[in-house]
Design a protein around this nucleic acid. Sequence first.
DNA 1: CGATTTTGACCCGCGC
DNA 2: GCGCGGGTCAAAATCG
Length: 301
Amino acid sequence: MLLMDSGSRGDCSPVCLDLSVGLSPPSPGSGPETTADAERLDRPATGCWGPRTSSLADGKDEAKTLEARLTQVSEENRRLTEIIAYMYASQVAARRSPDGRKRSRDSLEPSNSGDANAAVESAALSDEGTCRRIKLTRVCTKIDPSDTTLTVKDGYQWRKYGQKVTRDNPSPRAYFRCAYAPSCPVKKKVQRSAEDSAMLVATYEGEHNHPSPTRAGELPSSTSINSSGPAITLDLTRNGAGAVRGLDAAAEVPGLKRLCQEIASPDFRTALVEQMARSLTKDPKFTDALAAAILQQLPEY
DNA sequence: CGATTTTGACCCGCGC
DNA sequence: GCGCGGGTCAAAATCG
């Protein structure tokens, strides 16, 4: 199961709504038409969910249309993410004391209880007022509860440089630096979840400036990603008529070929688009943040 | 013997 | 100013 955790953290949620999981990049020049998009996305979920009455040829056309829609939605999402994160950061900066005092290192990351907003906010404020963002990614992995090694197999080489017991969690937190490239700025913090000791929470800070040393860097099938904040949940485990099979299917299949075929299939894409649309419109945090961003853009009367 | 891990000390920002 | 807590340093211990 691959899901982007959301929602329950933070009060409002600007932030990296990275919905590009398993999607092809948006095609250039395929700019979205927001209003029309929303209308079309609001339509009842037919397609792969409902009975299929169309011919094969119609199905192909529909698949092409949906694929185009998918790239549009992806691009739209990316733009909104940038806009919202930037505007939220601007508001926070305006509210802060003007003395430009250095922020706490603590705020560079969400706490385990998870204030994702702080992460985005501090990232956007970094670098002397420029909007360069520090990428924060949280990855949760199911482990054997008896396993005490605090290791997450992500394909990179890490050097442990510290371990601490934090107040909000009885299990220790381990600190790692990327050991593959000396100049790589990426850090990783690993700690068991306070709620579920079988869940290992790894927080990555920064981005690797080198390729992954192995393809084993792909995430385990029972992994959830919380990309520095917000709040969209993609339930890819949903089954149904012609519907999405979860990425757990990879565990049942020898090799990734079949999984890749499934991801590339029109049915998967259709389901993904519809799931994204439902998630976006259902999530009040997203709509609030979007509304705030739009209001900011409007001239004051 | 070099690389890696462990662990106590230290640093620094924040709240009171 | 002081104490607290998270993050980092670095010497010692351990491993291959």
